[in-house]
Protein backbone atom coordinates (compact mmCIF):
# COMPACT_ATOMS: atom_id res chain seq x y z
CA UNK A 1 0.00 0.00 0.00
CA UNK A 2 1.25 3.47 -0.86
CA UNK A 3 1.47 6.37 1.57
CA UNK A 4 -1.58 8.63 1.58
CA UNK A 5 -0.99 11.15 4.36
CA UNK A 6 2.49 11.98 5.61
CA UNK A 7 3.20 14.18 8.63
CA UNK A 8 6.77 15.22 9.31
CA UNK A 9 7.79 16.82 12.61
CA UNK A 10 4.44 18.60 12.94
CA UNK A 11 4.49 21.09 15.81
CA UNK A 12 1.47 23.23 16.66
CA UNK A 13 -0.33 24.88 19.56
CA UNK A 14 -2.42 27.72 20.88
CA UNK A 15 -0.96 30.99 22.13
CA UNK A 16 2.11 30.31 24.28
CA UNK A 17 1.20 26.65 24.63
CA UNK A 18 2.70 23.98 22.40
CA UNK A 19 0.26 21.09 22.13
CA UNK A 20 1.81 18.92 19.43
CA UNK A 21 5.53 18.23 19.46
CA UNK A 22 7.28 16.92 16.34
CA UNK A 23 4.64 14.45 15.27
CA UNK A 24 5.67 12.21 12.39
CA UNK A 25 3.18 9.73 10.98
CA UNK A 26 2.49 7.98 7.70
CA UNK A 27 -0.96 6.68 6.85
CA UNK A 28 -1.39 4.16 4.05
CA UNK A 29 -4.07 4.31 1.37
CA UNK A 30 -7.19 2.36 2.34
CA UNK A 31 -8.15 1.07 5.77
CA UNK A 32 -8.70 2.55 9.17
CA UNK A 33 -6.04 4.33 11.21
CA UNK A 34 -6.81 5.20 14.83
CA UNK A 35 -5.18 7.77 17.08
CA UNK A 36 -5.75 6.86 20.71
CA UNK A 37 -5.04 9.01 23.71
CA UNK A 38 -6.51 10.52 26.85
CA UNK A 39 -8.46 13.76 26.79
CA UNK A 40 -6.43 16.94 26.45
CA UNK A 41 -3.36 15.33 24.93
CA UNK A 42 -3.70 16.83 21.46
CA UNK A 43 -5.87 14.45 19.42
CA UNK A 44 -8.31 17.13 18.28
CA UNK A 45 -5.48 19.60 17.83
CA UNK A 46 -3.75 17.15 15.50
CA UNK A 47 -6.83 16.89 13.27
CA UNK A 48 -7.24 20.67 13.30
CA UNK A 49 -3.63 21.07 12.25
CA UNK A 50 -4.08 18.60 9.39
CA UNK A 51 -7.23 20.32 8.09
CA UNK A 52 -5.59 23.76 8.24
CA UNK A 53 -7.81 25.25 10.95
CA UNK A 54 -4.70 25.60 13.09
CA UNK A 55 -1.48 26.86 11.49
CA UNK A 56 1.63 24.73 11.95
CA UNK A 57 4.56 26.10 13.96
CA UNK A 58 6.93 23.71 12.24
CA UNK A 59 6.94 20.58 10.12
CA UNK A 60 5.10 19.59 6.97
CA UNK A 61 2.02 17.70 5.83
CA UNK A 62 1.49 16.08 2.45
CA UNK A 63 -1.29 14.08 0.85
CA UNK A 64 -0.25 11.59 -1.82
CA UNK A 65 2.85 13.62 -2.66
CA UNK A 66 1.01 16.96 -2.70
CA UNK A 67 2.44 19.39 -0.14
CA UNK A 68 -0.37 20.81 2.01
CA UNK A 69 1.78 22.77 4.46
CA UNK A 70 0.42 26.29 4.99
CA UNK A 71 -2.64 25.91 2.76
CA UNK A 72 -6.04 27.34 3.72
CA UNK A 73 -8.73 24.94 5.03
CA UNK A 74 -10.74 25.22 1.79
CA UNK A 75 -7.67 24.29 -0.26
CA UNK A 76 -7.05 21.28 1.97
CA UNK A 77 -10.67 20.16 1.52
CA UNK A 78 -10.24 20.55 -2.24
CA UNK A 79 -7.09 18.41 -2.05
CA UNK A 80 -9.20 15.61 -0.54
CA UNK A 81 -9.01 15.70 3.27
CA UNK A 82 -12.44 15.80 4.89
CA UNK A 83 -12.55 16.60 8.59
CA UNK A 84 -15.70 15.63 10.53
CA UNK A 85 -15.17 17.76 13.63
CA UNK A 86 -15.79 16.90 17.26
CA UNK A 87 -19.38 17.55 18.33
CA UNK A 88 -20.56 17.42 14.70
CA UNK A 89 -20.75 21.21 14.14
CA UNK A 90 -23.84 20.90 11.96
CA UNK A 91 -25.51 23.96 10.49
CA UNK A 92 -28.29 24.12 13.12
CA UNK A 93 -30.90 26.02 11.08
CA UNK A 94 -30.49 23.96 7.91
CA UNK A 95 -32.37 20.76 7.21
CA UNK A 96 -30.65 17.37 7.05
CA UNK A 97 -30.52 17.47 3.26
CA UNK A 98 -29.18 21.04 3.22
CA UNK A 99 -26.47 20.00 5.66
CA UNK A 100 -25.56 17.03 3.48
CA UNK A 101 -25.43 19.19 0.35
CA UNK A 102 -23.12 21.66 2.13
CA UNK A 103 -20.70 18.72 2.33
CA UNK A 104 -20.58 18.82 -1.46
CA UNK A 105 -20.06 22.58 -1.61
CA UNK A 106 -16.93 22.58 -3.76
CA UNK A 107 -17.59 22.34 -7.52
CA UNK A 108 -16.00 18.90 -8.03
CA UNK A 109 -18.05 17.36 -5.21
CA UNK A 110 -21.19 19.25 -6.28
CA UNK A 111 -21.03 17.63 -9.71
CA UNK A 112 -21.34 14.22 -8.06
CA UNK A 113 -23.69 15.20 -5.23
CA UNK A 114 -26.77 13.31 -6.53
CA UNK A 115 -24.81 10.04 -6.77
CA UNK A 116 -23.17 10.55 -3.35
CA UNK A 117 -26.48 11.41 -1.73
CA UNK A 118 -27.84 8.03 -2.84
CA UNK A 119 -24.78 6.32 -1.32
CA UNK A 120 -25.15 8.22 1.96
CA UNK A 121 -28.85 7.37 2.18
CA UNK A 122 -28.07 3.69 1.45
CA UNK A 123 -25.47 3.66 4.24
CA UNK A 124 -27.51 5.75 6.70
CA UNK A 125 -31.20 5.12 5.87
CA UNK A 126 -32.32 7.09 8.91
CA UNK A 127 -31.15 10.27 7.23
CA UNK A 128 -33.47 9.67 4.28
CA UNK A 129 -36.42 9.54 6.70
CA UNK A 130 -35.27 12.73 8.38
CA UNK A 131 -34.17 14.55 5.24
CA UNK A 132 -36.43 17.60 5.73
CA UNK A 133 -35.98 17.91 9.47
CA UNK A 134 -34.04 20.90 10.82
CA UNK A 135 -30.67 19.78 12.21
CA UNK A 136 -31.10 21.37 15.65
CA UNK A 137 -34.11 19.12 16.33
CA UNK A 138 -32.27 15.81 15.76
CA UNK A 139 -31.15 13.39 18.46
CA UNK A 140 -27.45 13.04 19.27
CA UNK A 141 -27.05 9.83 17.26
CA UNK A 142 -28.85 11.32 14.25
CA UNK A 143 -26.66 14.39 14.40
CA UNK A 144 -23.55 12.22 14.40
CA UNK A 145 -24.88 10.43 11.32
CA UNK A 146 -25.52 13.75 9.56
CA UNK A 147 -21.97 14.81 10.46
CA UNK A 148 -20.49 11.65 8.98
CA UNK A 149 -22.84 11.74 5.98
CA UNK A 150 -21.92 15.36 5.32
CA UNK A 151 -18.27 14.36 5.39
CA UNK A 152 -18.89 11.55 2.90
CA UNK A 153 -20.60 14.00 0.51
CA UNK A 154 -17.20 15.62 -0.06
CA UNK A 155 -15.86 12.43 -1.62
CA UNK A 156 -12.45 12.96 -0.02
CA UNK A 157 -9.47 10.64 -0.27
CA UNK A 158 -9.15 10.72 3.52
CA UNK A 159 -12.02 10.99 5.99
CA UNK A 160 -10.98 12.21 9.45
CA UNK A 161 -13.44 11.54 12.28
CA UNK A 162 -12.93 13.27 15.63
CA UNK A 163 -14.32 11.08 18.46
CA UNK A 164 -17.39 9.69 16.68
CA UNK A 165 -18.45 8.01 19.95
CA UNK A 166 -18.47 11.23 22.01
CA UNK A 167 -21.60 11.71 24.10
CA UNK A 168 -23.56 8.81 22.60
CA UNK A 169 -25.29 5.86 24.26
CA UNK A 170 -23.37 2.55 23.97
CA UNK A 171 -25.89 1.04 21.53
CA UNK A 172 -25.62 4.10 19.25
CA UNK A 173 -21.81 3.98 19.47
CA UNK A 174 -21.96 0.40 18.17
CA UNK A 175 -24.15 1.51 15.25
CA UNK A 176 -21.77 4.36 14.40
CA UNK A 177 -18.72 2.06 14.51
CA UNK A 178 -20.53 -0.50 12.35
CA UNK A 179 -20.95 2.23 9.73
CA UNK A 180 -17.29 3.24 10.06
CA UNK A 181 -16.27 -0.42 9.67
CA UNK A 182 -18.42 -0.75 6.52
CA UNK A 183 -16.82 2.35 5.03
CA UNK A 184 -13.31 1.10 5.75
CA UNK A 185 -14.16 -2.32 4.28
CA UNK A 186 -15.37 -0.56 1.13
CA UNK A 187 -11.91 0.98 0.71
CA UNK A 188 -12.43 4.44 2.18
CA UNK A 189 -9.28 5.67 3.95
CA UNK A 190 -10.27 6.79 7.44
CA UNK A 191 -8.37 8.44 10.27
CA UNK A 192 -10.31 8.22 13.52
CA UNK A 193 -9.53 9.80 16.86
CA UNK A 194 -10.78 7.82 19.85
CA UNK A 195 -10.30 7.73 23.60
CA UNK A 196 -11.26 4.10 24.08
CA UNK A 197 -8.79 1.70 22.42
CA UNK A 198 -11.15 -1.29 22.65
CA UNK A 199 -13.64 0.31 20.24
CA UNK A 200 -11.21 0.44 17.34
CA UNK A 201 -8.69 -2.33 18.14
CA UNK A 202 -10.37 -4.98 15.97
CA UNK A 203 -11.12 -2.66 13.04
CA UNK A 204 -8.00 -0.51 12.76
CA UNK A 205 -5.15 -1.51 10.49
CA UNK A 206 -2.89 0.91 12.35
CA UNK A 207 -3.13 2.30 15.88
CA UNK A 208 -0.99 5.05 17.29
CA UNK A 209 -0.91 6.40 20.83
CA UNK A 210 -0.77 10.14 21.43
CA UNK A 211 0.49 11.10 24.86
CA UNK A 212 1.14 14.69 25.93
CA UNK A 213 1.68 15.85 22.35
CA UNK A 214 3.98 12.98 21.36
CA UNK A 215 3.27 9.82 19.40
CA UNK A 216 4.58 7.20 21.80
CA UNK A 217 3.62 3.88 20.23
CA UNK A 218 2.49 2.78 16.78
CA UNK A 219 1.42 -0.70 15.79
CA UNK A 220 -1.49 -2.99 15.03
CA UNK A 221 -4.69 -3.29 16.99
CA UNK A 222 -4.20 -6.90 18.06
CA UNK A 223 -0.65 -6.11 19.11
CA UNK A 224 -1.86 -3.29 21.36
CA UNK A 225 -4.55 -5.38 23.03
CA UNK A 226 -1.96 -8.10 23.70
CA UNK A 227 0.24 -5.67 25.58
CA UNK A 228 -1.73 -4.49 28.60
CA UNK A 229 1.31 -2.69 30.04
CA UNK A 230 1.16 -0.11 27.24
CA UNK A 231 -2.51 0.55 27.79
CA UNK A 232 -1.90 0.84 31.50
CA UNK A 233 1.03 3.24 31.17
CA UNK A 234 -0.59 5.63 28.76
CA UNK A 235 -4.32 5.24 29.16
CA UNK A 236 -4.55 3.95 32.70
CA UNK A 237 -6.86 1.23 31.45
Amino acid sequence: MSALLTLQNVTAGYGSQTVLREISLTIAEGGLTAIIGPNGHGKTTLLRAISGLLPLRAGSISLGGLNLTGLRPDEIVAAGIIHVPQGDMLFPEMTVIENLLMGAYLPEAAAESAMRLEQVFALLPKLKERRNQVASTLSGGERRMVGIGRGLMGGGRLLMLDEPSLGLAPIVIDQIYDVIGELAAAGQSILVVEENAARVADKASLITLLDNGHLVWTGQGAELMARPEILETYLGA
Binding site: S51, V77, F91, P92, E93, M102, Y105
Partner: peptide, 23 residues
Protein backbone atom coordinates in the same frame (compact mmCIF):
# COMPACT_ATOMS: atom_id res chain seq x y z
CA UNK B 1 -27.71 30.28 -4.79
CA UNK B 2 -24.29 28.87 -3.96
CA UNK B 3 -23.21 32.21 -2.50
CA UNK B 4 -26.35 32.28 -0.33
CA UNK B 5 -25.67 28.79 1.01
CA UNK B 6 -22.10 29.83 1.81
CA UNK B 7 -23.34 32.95 3.64
CA UNK B 8 -25.85 30.96 5.71
CA UNK B 9 -23.34 28.23 6.50
CA UNK B 10 -20.74 30.78 7.58
CA UNK B 11 -23.28 32.56 9.78
CA UNK B 12 -24.41 29.32 11.45
CA UNK B 13 -20.97 27.81 12.05
CA UNK B 14 -17.86 29.46 10.71
CA UNK B 15 -15.45 26.58 11.31
CA UNK B 16 -17.81 23.99 9.88
CA UNK B 17 -18.22 26.18 6.78
CA UNK B 18 -14.43 26.23 6.37
CA UNK B 19 -14.37 22.44 6.64
CA UNK B 20 -16.90 22.25 3.78
CA UNK B 21 -14.47 24.20 1.59
CA UNK B 22 -16.08 27.63 1.97
CA UNK B 23 -13.51 30.41 1.74
Amino acid sequence: TRLGRAIRATAQNREAAQLMGVR
